[in-house]
Amino acid sequence: MRQRSDIRVLTDAFRAELLKLVTLPAIQYTVLGIWAVTALITVALVNAGQDNTDVLSGPVPAGFVVLGLLSMTSEYQGGQIRTTLVAVPRRITAYVARLVAIVVVTGPVAGATVAVNALVGGRADGRAIGYLTATALIAQAVGALLRRTVPALVGLLTYYFVIGPLVRDRSFAEYLPDGTNWLALSVWAAGITALALAAFHTRDA
């Protein structure tokens, strides 16, 4: 019997994760919702004479929280996680494949969102692509840790939309997961992903 190489096992797993993400209706609707809301609010901002890129740090990250979260918690519906682990038993391979697929999906979605905003509003904010992708990554890790959509969503949205804005004026705010410091943001995303990977590696599925 033929044996696949380790690289081939990983690329096959990646293709599977990509297929899973793009064939999930909830992911499709979330992406369309992000673009629709971005366009709508950009129009409102322009009419109000405000900076059109405000929307990218305002309501839009919520869409990327949902995107990242669903890409992980959808595994825990219908017992799909079992199917995944029977097809890709090595957990690190399974998680890394999924992580790369999430980046490959959310990166371009973030790019297109910034493009929509720039086309409608005039000013482009390229940095938002990185921020939105990082937000989705943080959300996927929280989803992988909690394995439940609603509690994870409530926690994330409460942080991003209630607690975060409350402490925005503090000196440490730029180093928080919703802050403006790139290094801190990368450390948050990498740290919580490592934690989620460790949990996924050791826990019973």
Partner: peptide, 13 residues
Amino acid sequence: LTFCIVNMSVVSV
């Protein structure tokens, strides 16, 4: 959840 929580926040649509 997303709609209501975002809308009650400081970035209210």
